[in-house]
Simulated scan of single mutants.
Amino acid sequence: MDISFSSMFFHDASMEDIFQAPGLCGSDTLEFWLETPDFWLNGLNIESLKKWIAMYPTKIPLSVHAPVLDLNPCSINPDVREVSIQWIIRSIYLAEQIGASICTIHPGRRTAKRPPSITDYQRLGHMLDCLEEIVDDLSVKVAIENMEPAVNALLTAPDEIMKLLDERSWLCFTFDFAHAMDSGPDIVRSFVEIGEPELVNIHLSGGKNGKLHGPVSGDTKVSTFLSKIKENGYNGQVTLEINDLVLPRELSYSEKITFMAQEIAWLKKSMR
C-alpha cells in the first residue's frame, strides 16, 4: 500500500512547505486540496504548481481533492449546482495536467437538513453525466467519496456506492473510514469489500469524543480496519486525512512535520 496524507493538515502553509512535507514526513505521496489558500487565493497558477511538484517529487504521483467547501452539485439553487459542476470538471482537468493519479470528488448534499429525495439523486446523476462526457480521454481516475451519515447526506451506504460503480464503469471510489465508522463495523466491512479496481484510495483517520479526522496512532478501530484491508489484499493508496484543528493545541510547521512523521511510522508498522 502507498501512504499519503492530505495537504489540509498543512492548510495555511506555503506551497513550498506543503510540497516539501512528504519528503520530511516519509510518505510516498500527497493528496493536494485545491482549496489550499496559497494556491486557491493566488490565481490557481498551474505552472507554479507544476514547479513545486517538480522541485519536490514524490515517490508516486500525487492525488487531488476537488473543492467542496462552498460548493454543492446537488444544491436547490441551479446556479450553485452548475458552478459546482464546473469546478469539479476544472479540478479533473487540473489533476490530469499535473499527472495526478486520482481526483476525489464529493457527491453533494440536500440543501435542506432533510433526508435526500429522488430529486437530489437526479441532480447527482446530472453531475456524473457531465463528468462522463470528459473522462474518456483522461488518464486520471475520478473517485467519488462516501459521506458521513448526516440527515441530508448522499452516498452514506455501501449499496448506494456499488450501484453507481455498476452503472458507470469509468467511476472509482475513495472510501472515507471516518465517515463510515459511526455506522458500525458491518458497514465499514461492506464498503471495503467493494475492493479493487474500483476502490483506489482510502481516507484514514481516527475519532475520539465525537470528533472526526483525528490521529490514527493507537486507535483500536483503525488497527482493526488495517488488519481487514491487509486480509483483503488491498494495494491502493491510504491517505491520512487528519484535521489539525481537532488536536489539543495549535502546532507549528516543524511540530506538524514531527506529528505526521510519527503517524506515518505507526501506519507503516501496523501495515506490516
Rank of each mutant, 00 (worst) to 15 (best):
F173E: 04
V192D: 00
F259L: 09
E231R: 10
R189M: 12
C130E: 15
P185K: 14
S227V: 06
E250Q: 14
M260N: 09
P67F: 00
A143E: 02
S27D: 03
D137I: 08
I88T: 11
D2T: 08
S48L: 13
E82G: 04
H65S: 01
G125C: 10
A21M: 10
P149R: 02
D129T: 11
L69A: 12
H179E: 02
K221L: 12
E250G: 07
K163G: 09
I242M: 07
S139P: 03
R81M: 12
F225L: 15
G233T: 05
N45Y: 05
G23H: 01
P116V: 03
W170M: 10
K51H: 15
P248C: 12
I53K: 10
M1F: 00
G206W: 00
Q262E: 15
D70S: 13
M8A: 14
R110I: 00
N209A: 13
W40K: 11
K221F: 04
K208D: 13
I242V: 13
M55I: 12
C74R: 02
I3S: 06
K50T: 06
S63D: 04
L94Y: 04
C130I: 06
D28H: 13
N42K: 11
H179K: 11
G218D: 07
I161G: 03
I229Y: 00
I202D: 05
L154Q: 08
M1E: 01
I88L: 06
E132C: 15
Q237G: 02
D17W: 01
F175S: 02
K269L: 12
T104R: 04
I46R: 12
S84G: 08
I134E: 06
E198F: 14
L138G: 12
T258L: 15
L164M: 07
S205V: 04
W170Q: 09
A21Y: 07
G207W: 01
A66I: 03
K221H: 13
L138N: 08
I187W: 01
P22K: 04
R90P: 09
E198P: 03
I98W: 00
D244L: 04
G43F: 01
V192G: 04
I102Q: 00
I105R: 03
F175K: 02
M260A: 06
L247F: 02
K269T: 13
M181S: 09
I264F: 00
I3T: 11
D129W: 01
E47R: 10
E160A: 02
V151I: 15
W40G: 10
C130N: 10
I46F: 01
N146H: 01
D182P: 08
